[in-house]
Design a protein around this nucleic acid. Sequence first.
DNA 1: CGGCGGTTTTCAGATATCTGACCAATATTC
DNA 2: GAATATTGGTCAGATATCTGAAAACCGCCG
Lengths: 293, 293
Amino acid sequence: MADTGISSGSAVGSAAPTNDVDADVSGSSSIGTGPAVGADSAAGVKSARRAVELLEAFGANHEWLSLTDLHHHTGFPRSSLHGLLRTLRDVGWIESDDAGTRFRLGVKALICGTAYLDRDPVMPYATEALERLRDQIGYTCHFARLNGPDIVYLQTRESRTSAHLVSRVGRTLPAHATALGKALLSELADDELTAVLPKQLTALTELTITDREALRSELAFIRERGYSTERGQSSPNLACVAAVVPYRIPGTDAMSCSMPGERVTDAELLRVGSLLRDVAEDLSQQLRRAGIR
Amino acid sequence: MADTGISSGSAVGSAAPTNDVDADVSGSSSIGTGPAVGADSAAGVKSARRAVELLEAFGANHEWLSLTDLHHHTGFPRSSLHGLLRTLRDVGWIESDDAGTRFRLGVKALICGTAYLDRDPVMPYATEALERLRDQIGYTCHFARLNGPDIVYLQTRESRTSAHLVSRVGRTLPAHATALGKALLSELADDELTAVLPKQLTALTELTITDREALRSELAFIRERGYSTERGQSSPNLACVAAVVPYRIPGTDAMSCSMPGERVTDAELLRVGSLLRDVAEDLSQQLRRAGIR
DNA sequence: CGGCGGTTTTCAGATATCTGACCAATATTC
DNA sequence: GAATATTGGTCAGATATCTGAAAACCGCCG
């Protein structure tokens, strides 16, 4: 039983149901439960599911992966992996080393994946709003979307002054550990929140909220005020403020500002928060007028 | 199989005016050569190939696509598409509308695809170099990579002054129509160039080089000088300068600056070019020292 | 040199997908 | 509003993949 559940640090392949090399993973074959009972994860076209699961394994592991590594991560039989890997390599979604025995993500994945941003009619408006915001406030501004228990950064405009970019398009962070995420979580009803939060609230820093009740009460406060704040909960020495863009119900998108955590006063945080709330409200009006939902 | 070869062309919804609904696309049927002889495009795990080909279709079409649309684009039987689409939707790589009948790219594609940037050890160095460059020059700077006949933007640092971002991470442009691409193409030997260029050099603007001989002679000049320039060849009223980052042979990566085309003199273009060449050379030395190839 | 631990690759039977034809649902037309 | 055209969904036989086991391969060390 390798599955310790607890953070275990590594977390690389933690999604895989087994760490046992030769464990029988195909579940359905266990006892005579015939065809997919719960039909939860075993449904659909097997090779297609496996292909994208493989891609996700590559997305989560930034080094070269061998066939055996992938067998550990995914639980797929080595022989099946062999065919899948060659197929994905031939179409350019993964690359192999010269020997053809180690693999990593290919550039096709980047090209295709980032097309998500073009396909979304919200983005042009969001970009423009981010630039207005950045020009008003001067700090780095983000636009992000809730995806299950995580937020995904969709667009960034960096501060004119501080050089470092806080995050990257496409990166995800646990929602409960970020101002963006807390703002979005505050939109959810109580049972929705319960359904979406992970069993264990992982801590990104010492200050990350890991207690569900503490989170709930803060979310209620955020909902009331219209924006969320955070100091050092996602990253040390970083303060963030975020507000939902209320063009959907419940809201899925939010905007934030990231500021150097030590040099910014509480009053400044609140000032930025209410400004942010106004810009987000403006943006959502634009979106609603444009018929975007 | 790669139908027209040409940049996937137009064709959003209007793709098939001919009602070739049931056209045989499986191609391989040349002459009685039984099972895949050349094994060109029909090899590998069929469902996996189709899954990613579907994703690419979504990447190239930014509207909602129906089952029939996809049938036109890919040539896959509708019944096969049905299973694939539900599978991809269930794993979050595509999304469907409420009716479950129109589809578009899902956020998982963005999350996973952008991991390409994390997996690449070049990127931290490239980002730092871009920031140095932008701070020295003031214009928007790009870092891009050659992928077949196209360049792919990997990272951008925007101008402090002009607000508009020129391109986006993950976007591709024809190499022959950009300064970045011309710099990278100038690294190739003559037969490599012939192999990589498309049959027809598509024009992005009136000034795009579409004559192969004109391109060849300019590439020779670029190779000699160490950087490439361009005015209005990729986009009207835009001037670009680019230099290869010579840490591989042939070089695959390059840096560029984009400037407002009208307000920049030729002398300024050349000044930026030689500065760019120096920064690219510095970066490549860093990379080589770090053992990155 | 040859055995050894580990990994990749191959192979034939078991299993799952693919597909063309067929039905159902929805949009379009008059 | 009914007929019609188009699209979406389902099914059983044909076909292809999947898989466990066994074989080739590789680097390593004695």
